[in-house]
Amino acid sequence: MEDCIKLHYVVDGQDFVSCGRASEDVKRTLKSLGISSQVIRKVAIAMYEGEVNMVIHADGGIADVGIYADRIEIVLSDKGKGIADIEKAMQEGYSTATEEIRELGFGAGMGLPNMKKYTDDMTIESELNVGTTITMRVNIV
């Protein structure tokens, strides 16, 4: 079996203050493994965006990270309301965030496009009122 370090986090949907802790921990772990700063930056940004999304849109969720020799895989899954129109959600500037969320500094409609931009591969599986699973891969070059 392929060698892999697995990290698992529960992202609390009620706690906006600690949102980002999972991403910080991943960042710290990657740094301790001597992964290049460019790769760490891509993973940190993509995962943080995903973490924020789960907190503001889906009442939290689960983050699983796998660190392999040649890549980092991040799986974010939630039991939120799902994404009605994925194509639209991928457009820069499109957001369903409330005014309340915007006051917190998020909901500019850059989250998903940004996650795609910083990763080498991203797939979204979403079902209305069931939840969303986003799988991202960042290659270690």
Binding site: G20, S23, S37, R41, A44, Y48, L104, G105, F106
Partner: peptide, 17 residues
């Protein structure tokens, strides 16, 4: 530079170095 004062400003800065 920002006018936002919540903890996510610091977490964002941390992610972006």
């Amino acid at each position: 530079l920002t006018g936002l004062c919540n903890p996510q400003v610091v977490r964002t800065a941390e992610m972006m170095d």
